[in-house]
Simulated scan of single mutants.
Amino acid sequence: MIYEVNLPKGYIVSDDRGRIDMEVVHEALAGVYWGLDRPRALTERSWANCLCFGIYAADGGLVGFGRVLTDYALRAHLGDVFVRPDLRGSGLGKMLVEAILAHPDLASVSHWTLTTEDAHGLYQRYGFRIAEPDGKWMTMVRTST
Rank of each mutant, 00 (worst) to 15 (best):
M1W: 04
Y3A: 05
V5D: 06
V5S: 06
V5W: 10
L7H: 02
L7D: 01
P8Y: 02
K9H: 11
G10M: 08
G10T: 05
G10S: 08
Y11D: 01
I12Y: 01
D15A: 08
R17Q: 13
R17N: 13
R17F: 11
G18R: 12
E23Y: 04
E23M: 08
E23H: 12
E27W: 10
V32E: 06
W34C: 05
G35W: 00
D37C: 03
D37E: 09
P39S: 09
P39R: 09
R40T: 07
R40C: 07
A41K: 09
E44W: 06
W47P: 00
W47F: 11
N49C: 13
C52S: 12
F53K: 03
G54D: 03
G54M: 08
I55N: 01
G60H: 10
G61F: 04
G64S: 11
F65M: 04
R67H: 05
L69T: 09
L69A: 13
L74V: 14
H77I: 05
D80A: 15
F82G: 00
V83S: 03
R84H: 10
L87N: 00
G91C: 12
L92H: 01
L96Q: 02
V97W: 00
A99E: 00
A102I: 08
A102M: 10
H103F: 05
P104E: 07
P104G: 09
L106Y: 05
A107E: 13
A107R: 14
S108M: 08
V109D: 01
H111G: 09
W112D: 06
L114P: 04
L114Y: 08
L114Q: 07
T116I: 10
E117H: 15
A119W: 06
H120M: 12
G121A: 14
L122Y: 03
L122T: 02
L122S: 01
R125N: 10
R125A: 15
G127M: 11
R129M: 13
I130C: 11
A131C: 14
G135F: 09
K136Q: 11
K136R: 13
K136W: 10
K136P: 00
M140D: 07
